[in-house]
Amino acid sequence: MPASLASHVESWHPGPVTDEDALPPGPAAALSAVLDLPGPAAASGDRLPPLWQWLYFLDWAPRRALGPDGHLRDARFLPPVPERRRMFAGGRCEVVAPLRLGEPAERVSSLAAVTPKRGRSGELLFVTERQEFRQHGSVCLVEEQDIVYRSGEGSAPHWPATLDRSAVPRSEEPWQLRLRPDETLLFRFSALTANAHRIHYDTPYCRDVEGYPGLVTHGPLLALLMLDLARRNAPERPVRSLSYRLHSPAFAGEHLLAAGTPADDRARLHIASHREPRHATAEVTFA
């Protein structure tokens, strides 16, 4: 019998690592253009919107360091499991004070938890990475990301052979924001976040190896879309905390709807398509 995933990480205890970034305004302006905003969401000296820290502290590894799926073969917080497959599951973020563009920042990354579980596709390994973002010696953000790993092929879900890319989701909720990610948008977002995972740009690999019916829309893009819904509808209300969860992949060309309902000091948000009412969900708490 093959060894359990837990056995591969029994002695895996990577230590924390610190990175620095000057937080130049260029990446924020670039994402604003990718999302078709009328102008940059933040300029030098402005508050960086929540989760836009994903545009910074990037690691551009040499091509020889990448595996067949486009991800790094080895890195500090990648668990040493064989034939590793990676899925972004969700995360949380506490905002003590927003990061300011154009001011040097420090990120301290550490391993928060490693939890083996068994799902419908077999054994899974949940890895939580914790990140603290600091400016001028003070903690500004505390973020945790949950990544799910499996070994080998597993039993993949059965996706439709073809996708209806003309159907448009509907909602009665007061906050709404629509997006139809195409191949160009996914390519540009991959470049902005240094994400070389082939499921976002290589259609033959996506279909023949991973078993998807088309290019997969980035999970982080879905999370950013939900947060942008809150930013556009409540620009005067700073976000104090947020949590998000990714439930089901969305694919290039599908019409997506970010919708939400505010209530007192919080808002519940989600991403829907015509075939899935909840690709992703989030809850935002306002200061």
Rank of each mutant, 00 (worst) to 15 (best):
Y205V: 11
S110G: 11
R63C: 05
L221I: 12
A280S: 14
E10H: 10
L246K: 01
L222C: 14
D146F: 05
A250I: 00
L124G: 06
P24K: 13
L224R: 15
D228C: 03
V209F: 03
L72T: 02
D202I: 11
E144T: 15
T193A: 00
F77S: 03
H197M: 00
R120L: 02
S151G: 09
A61N: 04
F126V: 04
R118E: 15
P157C: 08
L31M: 12
S241I: 11
S138E: 15
L37G: 05
P160I: 01
L124D: 01
S155H: 08
D21H: 15
S11G: 09
I271P: 03
E283R: 02
A112G: 10
V239W: 14
G15A: 05
L55G: 00
G137I: 11
H270K: 01
V148H: 06
L163M: 04
P181R: 00
R76I: 08
G152T: 10
L31Y: 05
G119R: 12
V114D: 09
E254T: 03
E153K: 10
R232L: 07
P160L: 04
S4I: 05
P174S: 01
T193Y: 08
V34D: 01
E83S: 06
L78I: 05
S151Y: 09
D146M: 05
A29H: 15
S7E: 13
R170D: 12
L23T: 05
E83A: 15
L246F: 10
H270E: 02
P157M: 03
F126M: 05
P79T: 01
P49F: 11
R92G: 12
L163G: 07
C93R: 07
G137F: 14
S109N: 08
V142R: 10
P98V: 07
R92E: 15
D182S: 04
P116T: 07
G91A: 06
V284Y: 02
Y205D: 08
R63F: 08
A196W: 03
E103R: 15
S243C: 14
T184D: 04
R180C: 04
A230Q: 09
D36S: 12
L229S: 00
K117D: 09
T217P: 02
P38G: 01
L101N: 10
V148D: 03
G70D: 00
L48R: 04
H200Y: 02
F251V: 08
S11V: 10
L51S: 08
Q135K: 00
E236S: 14
G211Q: 13
R275V: 15
F251N: 06
A259L: 03
S32P: 12
A156Q: 06
L111C: 15
G39P: 02
A161F: 08
A22C: 06
S190M: 08
G26T: 09
R47D: 08
P49T: 14
P68A: 07
P79S: 00
S121K: 04
R130S: 09
G211F: 14
N233T: 13
L37N: 07
A105H: 05
D36N: 06
G91D: 06
S155R: 14
Y149V: 11
A28L: 09
L35N: 04
D265G: 06
R232S: 08
E173W: 12
A196R: 15
V209N: 00
S155E: 14
A280K: 07
V216S: 05
R165T: 12
Y201C: 13
